[in-house]
Amino acid sequence: MLTDVEQERLVDLLVGTAEVIGDQLRTSAAVFMVADLAAYPLPLLERALSACRRELKGKLSLAAILERIDDGHPSPNEAWAIAMRAADERSTVVWTEQTRDAWSKALPLVEAGDIIAARPAFLEVYTRLVKDARAAQQTATHQISLGADSSARDGVLQQAVAAGQLVHEQVAEFLALPSTTPAFNPVALLAGRVEASPEADARTRARLAELAELLGCDPKEQAA
Rank of each mutant, 00 (worst) to 15 (best):
A196M: 04
Q7G: 09
L42G: 00
R26Y: 07
L10Q: 07
N77H: 10
D36G: 01
A35C: 02
R153C: 03
E173M: 08
D12P: 03
L189R: 12
A86M: 08
L37Q: 10
V167F: 07
A51R: 11
G192M: 06
F122S: 01
R100Y: 07
Q222F: 06
E124C: 00
F122H: 09
T181K: 15
A163G: 00
D149E: 14
K59I: 01
A118M: 04
E55C: 11
T27K: 11
P41G: 04
D23M: 06
D12W: 05
Q159G: 15
E89D: 14
L45H: 05
N185E: 15
R53A: 15
A117C: 02
P43V: 03
G58S: 06
Q143M: 09
R100T: 00
G192V: 07
C52K: 10
A152G: 07
W103I: 00
R193M: 08
K105H: 10
F32Y: 05
P108F: 07
L14T: 01
S150L: 06
D154G: 08
Q170V: 03
R153W: 04
T3P: 15
T181H: 15
A209E: 15
I21R: 14
P120T: 01
A152W: 01
Q98D: 15
V5M: 09
R100C: 02
V156N: 10
S75A: 04
H168D: 15
A196I: 02
F174E: 14
S151I: 13
P178C: 02
I82C: 09
R90N: 05
I116N: 14
S28A: 12
F122R: 05
V130F: 11
A35P: 01
T127C: 07
F122D: 04
P186D: 06
L44W: 04
A202E: 15
I65S: 04
A39M: 14
A18H: 13
E97F: 05
A148G: 06
L215Y: 08
T99P: 12
A64S: 10
D23K: 09
T181S: 14
G216L: 02
L45Q: 02
C217F: 12
